[in-house]
Design a binder for these strands. Structure first.
Length: 566
DNA sequence: ACCAAAAGCGCC
DNA sequence: AAAGGGCGCTTTTGGT
């Protein structure tokens, strides 16, 4: 059963039980109302303009929901997938404005929708869906995207367990004790002094790329940039302290004490919580983006600070080589599927005699997916094409479509963004004569860039779809676990329907493209591991049916995130 | 004082 | 001849 609701400044707009009217529930009452319906006899799909503007309020009121339909996210998918798109209503587009990440902040009486407007948008989406050739897959994509929106809001509300003391210990061990504001930590200052002496440049600030580059060149080093990869090939006494300086400076600026103060909220004792804003559909391929705290780049060096609460554990699961597996599934390439059957797909390439080392298998495969052709990859690609003509043919074809200015689709039907006027302007200037002109070069370069983008789009996007289904299925199964509270507190909120909070229950706390982390009471960790593994299988079947492609996981139960690295 | 671009580096 | 996809964030720098 669909229940249509919409946020307003005053509260939650809901249908009046008497019939066609509508009323606004103050936010203070909305949670109880929603929980009641969620726990009712009929399963509810909540339909609303934008999860991010409704669900956090409900979460704060202790409500967790099973299903929703996020009209904003689904409109974005459908408007590109449908032959006959319709414009998004203004109350839907405001949420996408960067200035108003939360629709609620931007709601005025003028752009806040009525329930009938919301229902009309839903009807159009349903019609567009059923009229679309790939309706079945697209329906799965919309459901997964919406489930992702619920998960994103829940993970923000729950936060990633973060041990502030441990984080400080890591920083102190690497950099020295926390310095007064504006001062370099002692380790960093010592390295800076060493670099200045070795380069005979007593006032050098190693943080300034421009002056550092000049100083390096003055000292006789033949470098064109100060990038790590270039420096590491040079033999000179300054290189080692300089690279160490850069490593530590990066740690300090990206995840130092200032980061800790800004992004980790204190909790009980040592265990704080890191909260980022997950942005489902934030990347055109369908990958999530995040905003705040650099959550997609938590460096290995700091992962030891991600620590489960006392009596709890982290179940860390990452999926191996999702992109080539997704490609095998899309292309129906049984040979590639077979290579991945026993776990490590790259090892499978070696075992099949296609390439001679795992490293080369990886380099070659990534080049096929990204469009690289340089050096070693160029030599391996022909072998991959011979061994896996269907898989490589699919990405080569996607690249060709992109080079010609076309759009491509993921397996479930997310469409790549159409080109803008800039593309046509550049392409239009070229090709008017046979000489290799600047315009010609620019046009070809642009076409190749686009080809690499569309080549990768189908693979990255389909992998993201698999991951979304994996995560949604994991969530569904975690919700179905018996609540730890139900026996001890019969008067408490029913669970899983409208569960008060994840307190005591395993819950997702992190997602990174092909990896999920579940925070769980220690005794449930084995159950959670099985759930995560089963969910990966289900996701594979949801996308590819009976096609024999596997999605093996590396699953570990650990006390802290760094221990998951084997 | 504020802003945008570029360089650089972290993650997948 | 060479040609690697997608992100977020911090710092410096040069501009207004």
């Amino acid at each position: 059963m669909d229940l249509v609701v919409a946020p307003t400044r005053a509260g939650l707009l809901v249908a009046d039980p008497s019939g066609s009217g509508e009323r606004t529930l103050p936010w203070a009452d909305a949670g109880a109302w929603v929980r009641e319906r969620e726990a009712g006899p009929e399963a509810v799909r909540w339909v609303w303009p934008d999860t991010a503007s409704v669900y956090p309020r409900l979460l704060a009121a202790g409500v967790r929901l099973a299903r929703c339909h996020d009209l904003r996210l689904c409109h974005a998918i459908l408007s590109l997938a449908t032959a006959d798109p319709w414009p998004a209503p203004s109350w839907l587009t405001t949420a996408a404005e960067p200035a108003a990440p939360n629709l609620l902040d931007d709601l005025t009486p003028d752009n806040s929708p009525s329930l009938s407007e919301v229902s009309t948008e839903l009807d159009r989406q349903v019609a567009a869906l059923s009229g679309s050739p790939g309706a079945g897959r697209l329906r799965l994509l919309l459901a997964a995207e919406s489930a992702g929106a619920l998960i994103a809001a829940e993970m923000h509300a729950d936060g990633l367990p973060w041990d502030r003391v441990r984080h400080d210990e890591i920083l102190t061990a690497e950099l020295g004790p926390r310095p007064p504001l504006g001062m370099r930590p002692e380790r960093l200052e010592a390295l800076a002094m060493q670099i200045r002496e070795l380069l005979h440049s007593p006032s050098l600030n190693p943080d300034s790329q421009a002056t550092l580059l000049k100083a390096l060149r003055n000292a006789g080093l033949d470098v064109a940039s100060t990038a790590k990869w270039e420096l590491s090939g040079i033999g000179h006494p300054v290189i080692e302290p300089l690279l160490e300086y850069k490593r530590l400076a990066r740690l300090l600026s990206a995840n130092g004490w200032a980061w800790l103060d800004t992004w980790v909220t204190p909790g009980d004792g040592r265990s704080g919580r890191f909260r980022t804003d997950y942005v489902p559909g934030g990347v055109v391929t369908g990958r999530w983006a995040t905003s705040g705290g650099g959550a997609l780049q938590i460096p290995k060096a700091i992962r030891a600070a991600v620590v489960a609460d006392p009596g709890w554990a982290l179940v860390v699961a990452d999926a191996a080589q999702v992109e080539p597996r997704a490609l095998a599934g899309m292309a129906g390439d049984e040979a590639l599927a077979t290579a991945g059957r026993d776990g490590d797909l790259y090892a499978g390439l070696v075992a099949s005699g296609v390439v001679d080392t795992r490293d080369r298998a990886k380099v070659g495969m990534l080049s096929a997916l990204y469009g690289g052709t340089s050096g070693e990859a160029g030599a391996i690609l022909p072998r991959l094409r011979r061994a896996y003509p269907r898989a490589t043919g699919l990405v080569d074809h996607a690249a060709g479509v992109g080079e010609r200015g076309g759009t491509v689709r993921t397996w479930l039907g997310r469409t790549s963004p159409p080109l803008g006027p800039a593309w046509h302007a550049v392409q239009g200037r070229a090709g008017e004569n046979d000489a290799i002109t600047t315009d010609e070069r620019r046009a070809r370069s642009q076409a190749r860039d686009r080809g690499r983008f569309t080549r990768n789009f189908v693979v990255q996007g389909t992998a993201a779809e698999w991951a979304l289904c994996w995560m949604a299925e994991t969530r569904r199964r975690l919700r179905d676990l018996p609540s730890p509270d139900s026996a001890s507190s019969p008067g408490g909120a029913a669970s899983p329907d409208g569960a008060a909070s994840p307190d005591g229950s395993p819950h997702l706390v992190f997602f990174l493209h092909d990896e999920i982390v579940v925070h769980t009471p220690l005794e449930l960790a084995p159950v959670v591991e099985q759930i995560v593994i089963a969910a990966a299988e289900v996701a594979g079947r949801l996308l590819f049916g009976e096609f024999p492609i596997t999605f093996p996981l590396h699953v570990t139960t650990v006390a802290s995130y760094d221990q998951a690295d084997k």
